[in-house]
């Protein structure tokens, strides 16, 4: 029993129960969700733990993390604002929007605010071209769409997160 397995014993058991014993490796995706929920990324230790649980090598787990863009192997902001700036979105002002958000937050595209709250990334098509500028927010647990956005509305959203975080403290 490794750390991940001990901490989420019930959940890991439930996940493994969905797959036949000789096809444990198929449980890699849901186990990665569990791992990523902790701090928004999959650590080296998580890789090793998951590999042990499903009896593959850590390298194989890392390949999965590396393939999917929504798994992360580095800690970044608590909220990842993922702005689509593909052609249709760009034509509705996504590029300027992205720049505006970043300038106001004082970061580069791909960067994270000093307080570790927000990371802003440019991503490929999110299938909401007609509602651009738009982005999705990936936090530790969920992905939420925000459509027909302006720099102002986005900064308000960030402010809300900031206040909520401060209150918790």
């Amino acid at each position: 029993m490794n750390a991940l397995q001990t901490k989420y014993a019930k959940e890991v058991k439930a996940i493994l129960a969905k797959y036949p014993d000789d096809q444990k490796r198929s449980a890699v995706m849901p186990l990665l969700y569990v791992a990523q929920r902790e701090a928004g990324y999959v650590s080296r230790q998580h890789l090793a733990d998951i590999a042990e649980i499903i009896e593959v090598t850590p390298t194989e787990v890392a390949s999965i993390v590396g393939f999917y863009t929504l798994y992360h192997d580095q800690p970044e902001g608590k909220y990842r604002i993922q702005v689509c700036n593909d052609l249709p979105c760009a034509m509705r002002g996504a590029d300027a929007f992205l720049q505006g958000v970043c300038e106001n937050l004082g970061i580069e595209v791909g960067g994270t605010t000093d307080d570790g709250l927000v990371t802003v990334e440019a991503v490929m098509c999110l299938a909401a071209c007609d509602k651009a500028p738009m982005f999705q927010v990936q936090d530790y647990e969920n992905i939420t769409y925000y459509e027909e956005q302006t720099v102002d509305s986005t900064l308000k959203l960030v402010d809300k997160w900031r206040k909520a975080g401060a209150k918790k403290k």
Binding site: T57, T59, A62, S63, G66
Partner: peptide, 20 residues
Amino acid sequence: DDPVIGFEARGRSLQIVTYS
């Protein structure tokens, strides 16, 4: 039967990695 090297990322960023 030692899958200790693998591919990470995609497209032009694809690279061989090892985590063993």
